[in-house]
C-alpha cells in the first residue's frame, strides 16, 4: 500500500483523480438516493404553495438572517414535541427553496408558529420584542414597518420557483402582484382572487393594521402565520399514532 502511494505521489494528475474519486463517494451514496427513494418525502395531497405575499415574507425572513436564531425543525424527541408540537415531516418543507431548518435556537423553534399569536402581537413584537417579552434577545425590526414592500416583480419570483419545481400555475404567476396586494387588503377587489387560487383557508388580513399600503411587515407576518400550516400531514400523523 505504501509502495503504491510512493508512486502515486510522484504523479500530479493521478493524485488529483484519486482525490476526486475518494471524496465523491460519500456524497453520492448519501445524497443521490434521497431524490429517488419515494419514502424520503411523505405524501400530502392537501399541501399548498406559498402565496406571493408569504413568499415575499419568507424572503425577508432570509434577508434578515432569522434562521440564524430560529429553527424550523421539531425533532422526534418527547420534550420537543411537547414544547413545540408534532415533529416536523420532510413534506412540510417540500416547497422550501432553500430549506430553513436552522442550526441554532437562540430563540425558540417556530416550525408551528402559524396561528399561535395574533397579527397585532407579531407586529408589536417585531417592532420591539422587549415591549412584550422584557428578557428577549431579539433585535427590534422597526424598519419592516417603514419599508414599502416591493411587489411588482413577484411574478418573476414565482416563475423562478416554478423553474425549481414548485407547482405555480400560469394564472398564479400572472396575478402575483395583485394577489399580494389583495391578501393584505381583504376589503379590496383583489382579495377574492387570492382565495380562488390558493384556497379558502388562506389568511386574508390587514397584517400590519394599515389598509391601502403594503409594508414589509405585512409580508413577514403573513409568512409567520403560515408556518406549519401548509399541510395537516404532521397533525394527522400524530393523531394516527395516538389512536
Amino acid at each position: 500500500m505504501f509502495n503504491f502511494h510512493y508512486r502515486l505521489e510522484r504523479n500530479a494528475m493521478g493524485l488529483v483523480a484519486a482525490i476526486i474519486v475518494v471524496a465523491s463517494i460519500g456524497g453520492l451514496i448519501e445524497i443521490a438516493p434521497l431524490f429517488t427513494i419515494d419514502e424520503t418525502v411523505e405524501d400530502a395531497p392537501d399541501m399548498r404553495v406559498y402565496t406571493p405575499l408569504e413568499l415575499a415574507g419568507r424572503n425577508i425572513y432570509v434577508r434578515e438572517g432569522c434562521y440564524a436564531c430560529h429553527s424550523q425543525m421539531i425533532r422526534t424527541l418527547r420534550d420537543e414535541v411537547e414544547r413545540y408540537g408534532p415533529y416536523s415531516l420532510a413534506v412540510e418543507s417540500k416547497y422550501d427553496h432553500p430549506m430553513l431548518w436552522g442550526s441554532k435556537r437562540t430563540g425558540p423553534d417556530i416550525a408551528r408558529l402559524g396561528g399561535k399569536y395574533s397579527n397585532e402581537w407579531h407586529v408589536a413584537h417585531l417592532y420591539n420584542p422587549r415591549d412584550l417579552v422584557p428578557e428577549s434577545k431579539m433585535p427590534a425590526y422597526r424598519w419592516l414597518l417603514r419599508n414599502a414592500l416591493k411587489i411588482d416583480d413577484l411574478g418573476e419570483h414565482l416563475a423562478a420557483m416554478r423553474a425549481v419545481g414548485v407547482p405555480y400555475t400560469d394564472e398564479m404567476i400572472a396575478n402575483a402582484t395583485a394577489d399580494a396586494y389583495g391578501q393584505a387588503n381583504p376589503d379590496s377587489g383583489q382579495a377574492s382572487g387570492v382565495t380562488e387560487r390558493y384556497g379558502d383557508a388562506t389568511n386574508l388580513s390587514l397584517f400590519d393594521g394599515k389598509p391601502g399600503t403594503l409594508t414589509e411587515m405585512d409580508a413577514i407576518v403573513a409568512y409567520l402565520q403560515i408556518l406549519g400550516k401548509l399541510t395537516d400531514a404532521a397533525k394527522q400523523a400524530e393523531q394516527a399514532r395516538v389512536e
Partner: peptide, 9 residues
C-alpha cells in the same frame, strides 16, 4: 432560489 428544497436541500 436554490435548486433543491426541503430534506434534499
Amino acid at each position: 432560489y436554490s435548486l433543491f428544497s426541503g430534506v434534499q436541500d
